[in-house]
Amino acid sequence: MSVASSPVRSRTGLVRAVLGRAGGYLAVFAVALTITFLLPRALPGGPLRTLGGADVADLDPAVRAQVAAAYGLDQPLPVQFWRYLRDLARLDLGESFNGGRPVAEAIADALPWTLLLVGTSVLLTAAIGVALGVIAGLRRGRGKGNLLLAGVLLLDAAPAFWVGMLAILFFGVHLGALPTFGATTVGHTGLAAVGDVATHLVLPVGVLVVAGIGQFFLVTRFSVASALHAPHVEHAHARGIPHRRVVARHLLRPALLPVHTQLMIELGWLVGGALVVETVFAYPGLGRLTFDAIQGRDYPTMQATFLTLVVTVLVMNALADLTYPLLDPRTRTRGAA
């Protein structure tokens, strides 16, 4: 009787699934686009408030109209929106209200630093958090596992900015060992420049790792501890597969699936979340750019940074969705049973 069915890899099905998801992302993107457009216009005072200096009310109406026209703010909203989209499509993000520098340029300068900072710290955070989480999960409820849990919770509870301040104090001021300011020092070339960038990364990355380890640790620990009694794990024991092998080959891979999702969520999140650390260490990334833009009521920059942040989160989410089937065959091919 039973003939093993060959796996059915339905191409069209996969394509449709991807398209369906892409549709969802596009919808979210469209909403985000609208929100970023409306945000400065909806806020009290509106974009004009800062344009004309301290107080718009004091401005000469003629000057005011002139300024508004210069920024296209005298047009009806739909026209403004259309222009906004058109410019966006050309990657023309406008000019900063503070100094008139093209916003696209500012973002292009800042984004790589943030990606470097966040990328490095998320990879490190994930590696350390997962390793510790696996240890604690396998020893759940026992002395060592509990100690580890308590330690990580304590670390995780410390706010990033505070840890950053303390880190500057110790490593920068007292030991003088590490740079605490910016991403580079001028005057380095070649390998020295790489080393320079790396030493500038140490403290901010360290702080982000300390602040971020908890999530990975908890997700991993919970998932591993639950998997300890999964039917296929218990059965592998019963079949006489040695304990270490059961853990390595049967328990961990399915148990670590949720961690992958967590990784991508964290990546997206941290791009905005790094703001505080970037401020503490005066790191020239996107977060700082955003913060300065808000502080300076710099609407074009604000819009652009917000949009970049949303897009980053969406891209990370999409990556998580698309790479997940590589790890979990159950979502890759459908059974023909």
Binding site: V28, V31, A32, I265, G268, W269, V271, G272, G273, L275, V276, G287, T290, F291, I294, T305, F306, L309, V310, V313, L314, N317
Partner: peptide, 9 residues
């Protein structure tokens, strides 16, 4: 959508 918003900013 809410989850995709940049929280802190």
């Amino acid at each position: 959508l809410v989850l995709a918003l940049p929280f802190l900013p």
